[in-house]
């Protein structure tokens, strides 16, 4: 199948280096300490953060840092065909673990000993790149909860189809079976915290694809930064002197 037309346009009309439209919104869940909705095109994810709070299971308590837990789930209505999904299948357990490790790398856990932070992410609409969208939503929600972080973690994916590197794959491109590189970076420190790829790619091409994904992450970071600034400004002026 042709994923990039001779005119250089993708199936949804984007250029190969173009991202989908991204949008972040803070404060979606009233009772959570922090919450956010993040959209990348048609992919839509909601995240809620609870904590730092008392550890529920005393035996899991860590005496010098916070315990970070993460739960990823997909809403039944999120995909094209409506399916009943068992909770805790292999895919969601794996993504939960990935998100947990990525977020743990940026949270300053040593500042909140003997406490626990719960991150819940749910996919409301799935159109490729749910992993990235979940990480971005979790970052927004953690910042909203006032949890100290070393840096903003942002994530974006890139692929390689029709011998062209493509940024931010959607569902159709994702299911083409080509390589899909998901990258998570610490935006300011310029460090990679997540790198996943489920196919083979020659070394030189891989470097190009990853470079492209990193560029995407930086664009996301800028967007998140703006959303946070806007939100903080609003809170401060409403509170008043």
């Amino acid at each position: 199948m042709e994923y990039v037309s001779p005119e250089g346009l993708r199936l949804d009309g984007r250029r190969p280096m173009e991202m989908r439209q991204i949008r972040g919104e803070i404060g979606a869940v009233a009772k959570a300490d922090g919450s956010a909705v993040f959209e990348m095109g048609n992919t839509k994810v909601i995240a809620a953060v609870y904590g730092p709070r008392e550890v529920q299971n005393r035996s899991q308590q860590i005496s010098d840092q916070a315990l970070v837990r993460c739960e990823y789930s997909m809403a039944n209505f999120s995909t094209g065909d409506r399916m009943r999904r068992p909770k805790g299948d292999r895919r969601s357990t794996e993504i939960s673990l990935v998100i947990r490790q990525t977020m743990e790398a940026c949270i300053m856990t040593h500042l909140m000993p003997r406490s626990q932070i719960d991150i819940f992410v749910q996919v409301l609409q799935a159109d490729g790149g749910t992993r990235s969208a979940c990480i971005n939503a979790a970052t927004l929600a953690l910042a909203d909860a006032g949890i100290p972080m070393r840096d903003l973690v942002t994530s974006c994916s890139a692929g390689y189809l029709n011998s062209t590197p493509l940024l931010d794959l959607n569902y159709v491109e994702d299911s083409a079976g080509g390589p899909d590189v998901t990258v998570g970076i610490l935006a300011k420190m310029d460090k990679v915290t997540l790198l996943q790829m489920d196919a083979k790619l020659p070394m030189d091409i891989f470097e190009n694809v990853m470079q492209l994904a990193t560029e995407g992450c930086k664009a996301v970071a800028q967007c998140i930064q703006e959303v946070l600034l806007e939100n903080s400004k609003k809170l401060e002026y409403q509170r008043g002197p």
Binding site: D33, G34, G51, P52, R53, M108, A143, D144, A145, G146, I147, P148, M149, R150, L228, L229, N231, S232, L235, E236, R239
Partner: peptide, 21 residues
């Protein structure tokens, strides 16, 4: 490391968080 307002007291620089525990 937080979102908030920068406060300065003599040499001390800190960030006063808005929404937090």
């Amino acid at each position: 490391t937080l979102c908030g307002v920068v406060e300065r007291v003599n040499k001390l620089v800190y960030v006063r968080a808005l929404r937090a525990r």
